[in-house]
């Protein structure tokens, strides 16, 4: 395939596929509402319910649970949007759209990148909208914090979109995708420190949390939102380590997804 590959067989098609992903999403209002409203309701209900009964074991300052759960809720938005946006690849295959893309001279990596970056753009944008609500609820947010958070959210989205594409590429039904993804995603999110801190959990849970790549995504976002530092209790990985693991996760998932697109036509 590489003999005739040209610059225009990667960037232009990838950008075109990316653009299509965005167009389809903004035209489907229910998807926008669902992806934003579900985590919001979840956050308000759980956060308010646990507001005063929550205390991070080992932390010096006390943290309001609404505040504790905010970064995790944003990762949840990213997770929902990114992974379920990749379902579209199953519909694209069924509706016939994908066959023309596959039969074109476009590089396979461009097909994967268009999808992954399309879905991660959507996910990042949705999570950012949510982040902008934070100051309204008394959570301070500087320009640095916003930029850093956007960067972290994009990294997390890329990894999750690629994971979604990897799963969806081989599947022929959206029902199957939902079943498998719920099985993988919910524990991934629950054990990421988004919902409860590692310091108060049973030791085996703590061990799982330390090998869960999402733990580092949530931690990176906690650090990014508070560039001046904030005590999240013991067991939350450092900013540097979190960023490195999050990047590694994104790169590894993208490589796997691209490889999947190359292997099955």
């Amino acid at each position: 395939m590489n003999a005739e590959a040209t610059p225009s067989s990667f960037l232009l098609p990838a950008a075109s596929l990316w653009r299509r992903e965005i167009l389809r999403f903004v035209r489907a209002r229910s998807r926008v509402i669902g992806a934003l409203a579900t985590p919001f309701v979840f956050w308000i209900l759980i956060g308010s319910g646990l507001r005063d009964s929550f205390r991070i074991p080992g932390a010096t300052a006390s943290v309001n649970y609404l505040e504790y759960a905010l970064p995790g809720t944003m990762v949840l938005i990213v997770l929902f949007t990114a992974v379920f946006a990749t379902i579209s690849v199953i519909e694209d295959r069924k509706a016939g759209f994908l066959q023309a893309v596959i039969a074109s001279p476009v590089r396979r990596s461009a097909i994967a990148m268009g999808k992954i970056f399309g879905c991660s753009t959507l996910a990042t944008a949705q999570a950012l909208i949510f982040l902008l609500l934070a100051p309204l609820l008394g959570i301070p947010l500087s320009a640095t914090a916003t930029l850093l958070s956007a960067g972290v959210l994009l990294l997390v989205s890329v990894g999750l979109s690629a994971l979604g594409l990897l799963g969806a590429w081989y599947m022929d039904s959206t029902q199957g995708f939902h079943a498998i993804m719920n099985l993988v995603l919910f524990p991934l999110w629950l054990l990421s420190g988004a919902f409860f801190p590692p310091s108060g959990a049973a030791s085996w849970i703590g061990w799982i949390m330390s090998v869960n790549p999402m733990t580092y995504g949530v931690a990176a976002l906690r650090h990014a939102m508070y560039p001046d530092g904030r005590d999240w209790g013991p067991g939350v990985p450092s900013f540097g380590l979190s960023i490195v693991i999050t990047i590694l996760f994104a790169v590894a998932m993208t490589a796997l997804a691209t490889n999947a697109v190359k292997r099955r036509e």
Binding site: S9, L12, P13, A15, S16, L17, R20, V101, S104, V106
Partner: peptide
């Protein structure tokens, strides 16, 4: 939009 997309795929 469909045709623009297809054209893009072919450079």
């Amino acid at each position: 939009e469909n045709l623009v997309h297809q054209g893009n795929l072919y450079g």
